[in-house]
Amino acid sequence: MIPRIKPLNFLSLQRKILVGGVLAVLLSARVRLSSQESSYYIKVPSLMSETEDLSCLLKTFDPLVANTVTCGSLCEGHEMCFGFCLVGSNSTEIRLDSNTKSLFLSEHRCALYSTSISLSWKGSKVVEGKCYSRWAHPRDLALKATATGNSYSTDYPASYAIDGYYCKQTTQEGTCFWSENAKNSWWLADLGDFHPVSSIRVRLYRSTTSYFRDIEVKVGNRSSEGDFSSFEFLARSSGEEVSSVVITLKAKNPLVGRFVSIQTLVSNFLVLCEVQILPATVTVH
Results as ranks from 00 to 15, higher is better:
Pro63Phe: 02
Arg109Cys: 11
Thr100Ala: 14
Asn67Lys: 02
Cys56Gly: 11
Thr100Gln: 14
Ser55Phe: 10
Cys71Trp: 01
Ser38Pro: 01
Thr68Asp: 12
Pro45Val: 04
Cys110Asn: 09
Phe84Gly: 08
Met80Phe: 06
Glu79Arg: 07
Arg30Val: 07
Asn67Asp: 15
Thr51Val: 03
Ser98Met: 11
Leu103Cys: 05
Val44Thr: 09
Leu33Ser: 05
Ala29Pro: 13
Ser106Glu: 14
Met80Glu: 14
Cys110Pro: 06
Thr51Cys: 08
Cys85Lys: 01
Gly88Phe: 05
Tyr40Asn: 14
Glu107Phe: 05
Cys81Val: 10
Ala66Phe: 04
Gly72Asp: 00
Arg30Phe: 14
Gly83His: 10
Ser73Glu: 02
Thr92Trp: 00
Ser116Leu: 06
Thr115Ser: 11
Leu58Tyr: 09
Leu86Arg: 11
Ile94Gln: 06
Pro45Glu: 04
Ser98Gly: 13
Ile94Lys: 01
Met48Pro: 06
Cys81Phe: 08
Gly77Asp: 07
Tyr40Gly: 14
Cys81Gly: 09
Leu112Cys: 04
Leu54His: 00
Cys56Met: 11
Gly83Cys: 12
Cys81Tyr: 05
Leu103Gly: 03
Ser89Tyr: 03
Gly88Val: 00
Met80Ala: 09
Ser46Gln: 01
Lys101Met: 13
Cys75Met: 04
Glu76Cys: 05
Ser46Trp: 02
Glu107Met: 00
Thr92Leu: 08
Asp62Ala: 10
Leu103Ser: 01
Thr68Val: 12
Gly88Ala: 13
Pro63Lys: 00
Ala111Pro: 10
Cys56Phe: 09
Leu74Phe: 03
